[in-house]
């Protein structure tokens, strides 16, 4: 059964030098309060595993960790949205490992699903070959990548029940459901914690057996206001 803890309690489990996969896609589905607490704690030398860099322009979402120089290595598919990450990459302060997006998520899935490797045609004939071994299966060439797990998966869902069952809204599942399977310790930040039995079985995107800790983050209304502000600022709303 998952245990309810505070954001402070969970963030303090993450030691300097840990590998941390953080859910979300450009802010949507990101565990905002856990990120803020890692920033407040000044946890450093992190290996940050996230599909893309922060919300465009940085300073929000995981952009706070890169701006605070808390990241020594980044593994993902794209960094271009986060100025601090791009600059860290350019100066060599942050080691960046680029993975094609589908390969990235499939490596995490492989780690969580007990598979030995990811075998994909994506990246053949490109520089990506340098990070993989090329092998032929059934007469066709593929790149072979190792699974990708982490010390911590810090994910975000809309609701949790006390068993740790999680449900998601909109496109916020993104990397969260897969990361939930691949962290040694899985911390889920949620808007709301509800009683067991109130979530319908098919509404559950992540079964509670994957989740170690639940923390209460912003309410849905608070997040609506936070995203309303950044989206309004970027002229993204009608």
């Amino acid at each position: 059964m998952a245990e309810v803890k505070t954001v402070q309690e969970c963030a303090s489990m993450v030691a300097d030098g840990a590998s941390v996969m953080v859910g979300g896609f450009l802010g949507v589905g990101a565990p905002l309060q856990m990120i803020d607490q890692l920033v407040a704690n000044g946890t450093k030398e992190l290996t940050l595993i996230s599909v893309v860099g922060s919300y465009p322009g940085g300073g929000f979402d995981i952009g706070k960790l890169t701006a605070g120089k808390q990241v020594k290595k980044f593994i993902g598919a794209h960094i271009g949205t986060d100025p601090a990450l791009v600059s860290g990459y350019n100066t060599g302060e942050i080691d960046v490992e680029f993975n094609p997006m589908g390969t990235f998520i499939e490596r995490i899935r492989a780690a969580g699903a007990g598979l030995g490797a990811v075998v994909t045609p994506v990246g053949i004939g490109t520089e990506v070959e340098e990070n993989a071994s090329k092998q032929s299966f059934y007469g066709k060439d593929y790149l072979v990548f190792p699974p990708l797990g982490a010390d911590f998966a810090i994910i975000k869902a809309k609701k949790a029940d006390h068993y740790g069952n999680l449900c998601y809204d909109g496109t916020s599942m993104n990397t969260n459901t897969t990361m939930a399977t691949a962290g040694k310790v899985v911390i889920a930040e949620v808007d709301e914690i509800v009683e067991v039995g109130t979530l319908a079985p098919n509404e559950i995107g992540t079964p509670g057996i994957f989740v170690d800790y639940i923390v209460k983050g912003f309410s849905t209304d608070e997040r609506k206001a936070i995203f309303g502000e950044i989206w309004q600022k970027g002229n993204k709303l009608k």
Partner: peptide, 26 residues
């Protein structure tokens, strides 16, 4: 009317059309 859980691959807010579906990255 924005849903903080609903965005596109550019980090922009979107809406879903009738019959739309959402799923994880894998």
């Amino acid at each position: 009317e924005q849903n903080p859980d609903l965005g596109n691959a550019g980090g922009e807010p979107i809406t879903m059309l009738p019959g739309g579906s959402a799923f994880d990255l894998a």
